[in-house]
Nucleic acid binder design. Structure first.
Lengths: 152, 152
DNA sequence: AGTTATTATATTGTGCGCAATATAGTTGTT
DNA sequence: AACAACTATATTGCGCACAATATAATAACT
């Protein structure tokens, strides 16, 4: 048995915010599987779609790998192959920047724009059968934003 | 532009709890890298160590893959190769259950028990330079527990 | 203009996460 | 005992994450 019980408890899983975040994240991503399976994409691919749908609402038709990476906190080692897979599935086009040929630009295809409606319908249904009834989502989101901000 | 702006906002990243969790989780795991690099392990391997250190305090010297998986919410497809890597690094022993030979038991080596002190010292230091000053960790943990519970 | 530094992305390699399936050991039934 | 059902773990395959490095285009400097 350790000498100082109070101190070793620092390492117990129930004391670890990180483990809670890691577990909560994976569990909720699992809850998206029915939608993701229907759309035939993965969760990170869904994030790219959501981001570009949103930017399209703001009249930005294309994005660079760097812009996506900054918003999603993902680097090119993750995004480059992910975007290639999405391209090969017909969800987006990849093309070089005209003024700066180092840049790789991404633009959604009509097919990718079309499935937004499916996602929206699913989210509206999911909101009905909400499993987060008892908790303060505002407070949780606020705390997570503060956390993300201080670790960015 | 979409017809019903209020509804499409359901799909905006800032409305997504899941994206916050996913990002917060990855950012905080990154913050553990200095420790993990020093111990020459990964974050999921660190979780296994923490769990088995804790169980050892409670006089449980060994665990099965199933017990680890239940607590960490990970399946054998993740744990089996992870535990083999930990075994090959000399952190643990893997052996079959005596009464039930389907069970794979895990026991930490002295080397794995020894590095607990390093982890503890690092955590104590990290607590000093805490980056989570401004937020209510109690409330955050409570909300995450409720979330994890309802999605388990 | 030619050289150096910087920037944007791509590549490589390792280790998860997880769905799907396989295998081997155990339990229950007749 | 034989066989079916069940259980615990292992295997396979794919797609992230991310560190480390490479490559190519641009910018900055002299």
């Amino acid at each position: 048995m350790p000498k100082e019980t109070l101190e070793t408890e620092l390492l117990y899983l129930d004391q670890q915010l990180c483990f809670r975040l890691y577990t909560a994240s994976r569990l909720i991503i699992r809850a998206y599987q029915p939608l993701l399976k229907e759309l035939d994409i993965t969760y990170p691919q869904y994030l790219v779609l959501m981001l570009m749908w949103e930017w399209k609402d703001k009249d930005q038709e294309s994005s660079t790998v760097g812009q996506l990476g900054q918003r999603l906190q993902l680097d090119s080692g993750t995004l480059t192959p992910l975007l290639k897979r999405m391209e090969s599935k017909g969800l987006l086009e990849r093309f070089r920047g005209l003024e700066d040929e180092r840049e790789r630009h991404i633009r959604l295809t009509d097919q990718a724009i079309a499935i937004r409606e499916k996602a929206l319908a699913w989210m509206q249904l999911a909101r009905e059968g909400e499993r987060t009834k008892g908790l303060d989502l505002e407070a949780l989101s606020g705390n997570l934003d503060a956390l993300i901000d201080s670790f960015s």
